[in-house]
Design a binder for these strands. Sequence first.
RNA 1: UGACCCAUGGUGUAAUUGGCAACACGUUAGAUUUUGGUUCUAAAGAGUCCAGGUUCGAAACCUGGUGGGUCAACCA
Length: 567
Amino acid sequence: MNDENIKDREESKPSISFIEQFIAEDLKAGKNGGKIVTRFPPEPNGYLHIGHAKAICLDFGMAQKYGGKCNLRFDDTNPVKEEVEYIDSIKEDIHWLGFDWENREFYASDYFGRLFEFAKALISRGLAYIDDQPADVISSQKGTPTQPGTESPFRNRTVAENLDLFERMNKGEFDEGSRVLRAKVDMTSPNMHMRDPIIYRIIKSAHHRTGNEWNVYPMYDFAHGQSDYFEGITHSLCTLEFEVHRPLYDWFIDQLKNDDYRPRQIEFNRLNLTYTMMSKRKLLELVREGKVAGWDDPRMPTLCGLRRRGYTPESVRKFVDLIGYTKVEAINDVSLLEHAVREDLNIRAPRVFGVLNPLKVLISNYPVGKYEEVELVNNPEDESHGTRLVPFCREIFIEQDDFMEVPPHKYFRLAPGMEVRLKGAYIIKCDGFKKNEDTGEIEEVYCTYDEATRSGGEASNRKVKGTLHWVSAIQAVDAEVRLYDRLFDHEDPSGQKEDDYRSFLNPESLKVLTGCKVEPSLASAVPLEKFQFQRLGYFCVDYDSTPEKLVFNRTVSLKDTWGKINK
RNA sequence: UGACCCAUGGUGUAAUUGGCAACACGUUAGAUUUUGGUUCUAAAGAGUCCAGGUUCGAAACCUGGUGGGUCAACCA
């Protein structure tokens, strides 16, 4: 009887965002032929960051889920700011994230012709005019948010004169800044964007796609909505700051439409992350000023930075899914992002041994010159990953943190007189150490092993408090390891009125460790390959890595309850 | 002396659209563990910004506050 109920409850669909609700309603109401077409519209003036990932997941995700399409459209209406370099990186990053636009790669510049015609149509209908005033005059006539604007003296030129001037603007007869085309809307509107917005300006720089074909270029408000319309976009999803643009978006669509199709703009909240910032301008500054090594510096919130850091596309998508879409300006805790990678990497990353700060351990009763191989599980979360052989001998390296001369309470690692298990190998007992009396540094630790405790054997099942990772000193491979911490030491570095965001740069955000020792199986690791260094964290091979000199980036540490207790 | 948007545990989101405020992260305990990871169990933590109103019943609807955000680029 209640099989049905139980099933219902178990399958009770997770709640959908307000945007998805709108979409579902529109589809159900049969709007626009019951179809959904979205678009992701980056401006090619910077690299994509995780905030863009939030938009990408929505734009492509909604189309995918409801059987529609999502176009990639570069919003390239400002030739002075945009570069081809960015176009390639943007496409690469979207693909990396796991989305595809097939053959629907569009550019606002594809529509320059139609936009120009539409502008002329507006002029002919008395809905646009050429203004000869300089920028500062136009600006002051706009009024303020609390005071209405005043009309331009050029507002009521004849259609013929406007048309003539507009054509000549485009022919290059006038200087940049000397004239603009404005839509004739309402100078007294409480919405600043409706006060005769500028829709075309003269720019004589070459455009990366259209070259010198045009001398006038449309503004965002005159290009975006219309491009949506031309492409048959049904849902134009963008961030909250465009909310006040919506009346203008709709106004232009009203002038353009000739049947009952119309795109709908819906706004959602931006992604903000603690201890970083998303401003493309500021990220560019960090790069230009050399505060970071480049757009793909693993500390950057850019997609290429996250990729180099070792994040997987799955983990980024998971994170985006976790935070949701609302209209609240929120600031998300990075720990949620970190949780998302850990969860993903836990399943897929092979486990290996790597010692960051090596300390030599001499197993005095282990035969000199003897060498053996022990078998280790590659991934306890997934048997199909199999096992591997790791060399073991009389001299090994362990982590400096794993030995203490005078251990605190509950320290389960190596200390004089204490026993510890070397994972996959033997149980050893510490019976001495060598200390540099001047520096206090522990230079070597001496242990004995119990041959019967080899893993897999009977005696190996003995309870031992601690289990350590280790690397054979003879076969160990040297590596450089880069440890990353948050780029800023303030939760909201760019939100402080008094202080420049640069003053919050975390001086400890990068620590380079050299002379690290990793197990020999890593010698063949290639860039972007990901591993869990057991007990330490997840690491990813850096682009700088070569077979001669391995370089790893720490993506994120493992949760460290001991480290926390110890604080 | 404006317009528009927003307000739910520490954080991010839910609440079958008016019916006992739920989930995730984080936190704290405990169990398991040849990773102080994972997994599992449990707990603490909000009575929904405030004040009125409508209603048998309000986080949700209405009114008024308060607080925050956005808007005055020939940027997008």
